[in-house]
Design a protein around this nucleic acid. Structure first.
Lengths: 200, 200
DNA sequence: GAACAATATCTAGCGTCGCTAGATTATGAG
DNA sequence: CTCATAATCTAGCGACGCTAGATATTGTTC
């Protein structure tokens, strides 16, 4: 009975096309241009079909955001892995984070700004989000005592997020980005409540 | 010719009522509930009147945001002034910032999240925004060399903004707020590239 | 292969939004 | 008192998210 499976595959493929179209339009023209009618046009189906895949428009945005979390996780992991020395790892991760946020503003917006309604409660934290957090925590753990890693990672994350948002909205000087990152690296390096007894 | 002045006063008062209504509705029911029709109802005029005061809905949101910047500036200044010791000043300012963002989420949203279109270019930075920045810079200056104050303030601000946003959207643990702020204070205190040769 | 049940999809439209053109009313000048 | 001007309103356009009910497509059964 491969027939049901083929249907399932077709459905999944169509769903992926919806998400891909949403992402492309958002990155090219902003999220306001991502309307259900437009997406329906793009995939060459009528509007109600979209509602058989997603509960509402916000759920489509959330699906794009989930992709974004996967992307940023790999970007952060790659940045961390190509750095031998801890301070350099922090710097490269920070740079990678800002690069991601500023080069894909619409995607980043979907991840952090837009679907304020679809909140993640603490228990049911989405795995994609958790993975991104862990990628940051891995770098922070190079400097902080295990007991302080969670709060330090949250703070590090908040700083990166804030830098991304304020730079994205033109409220801090793009020219001073390197200087700011240097400050962040220095701050984290100073967090020696119990460092890993390794190099440096 | 006091007649034109009376008209001007009436107009200004009506404009203030629009902004006040927008702020109240937003704080009570969220920005989605702030529609032009609803505001027109609230001030007991028809819709087009609103467009003689503001270019569009976003401009109304921006007016509320401007009020918010004034409010946060005084809140930060007050927090700084009631602290004698520098480290305490930083801590109190950080607490005041987060308190503001989390107790008036809609207002904070208007200031930093919503009107992404109405950007502030670097030159024409709105004075209200500049004043808020200066209030932060005053505290940062207690620790950093003059030459580094700007970047340090931007980074400090970014951290506070990130903490506010991530906590507001339920992505970091509210219970660890004090711990995170302690880390921020420690980091800033470590920024001794050329401290003020004063107390501590 | 024809008839039917189930599923998939579409057409058409509801209510609401931001915004505006053109009609209408109030206002102050001569 | 007349009349131009300014202030305000009524009515409606186009687009939005979303959905009920009609229609077409599909797979099953005899």
């Amino acid at each position: 009975m491969g027939i049901a499976e083929r249907k399932g595959r077709d459905r999944a493929e169509r769903e992926a096309r919806i998400v891909a179209a949403a992402r492309e339009i958002a990155e090219r023209e902003g999220w306001d241009a991502v309307t259900v009618r437009r997406l329906a046009d793009e995939i060459e189906y009528s509007q109600p079909v979209l509602y058989s895949h997603f509960e509402n428009r916000d759920a489509i945005v959330a699906a794009v955001a989930a992709e974004g979390f996967k992307d940023i996780t790999t970007a952060l992991q790659k940045a961390a892995s190509r750095s031998s020395e801890p301070r350099n790892a922090v710097k490269n991760v920070a740079l990678a984070y800002l690069d991601f946020a500023l080069r894909r503003p619409a995607l980043y917006e979907a991840m952090f700004v837009l679907p304020t309604n679809l909140r993640f409660a603490k228990a049911e934290t989405r795995p994609e989000l958790r993975a991104a957090f862990e990628a940051l925590a891995a770098v922070v753990a190079l400097f902080c005592a295990d007991v302080a890693v969670a709060a330090a990672t949250e703070t590090f994350w908040a700083t990166l997020h804030g830098l991304a948002e304020l730079e994205r909205s033109g409220r801090i000087r793009p020219s001073a980005r390197a200087e700011r990152i240097a400050l962040v690296v220095a701050a984290l390096a100073g967090c020696r409540n119990g460092p890993r007894p390794s190099d440096e």
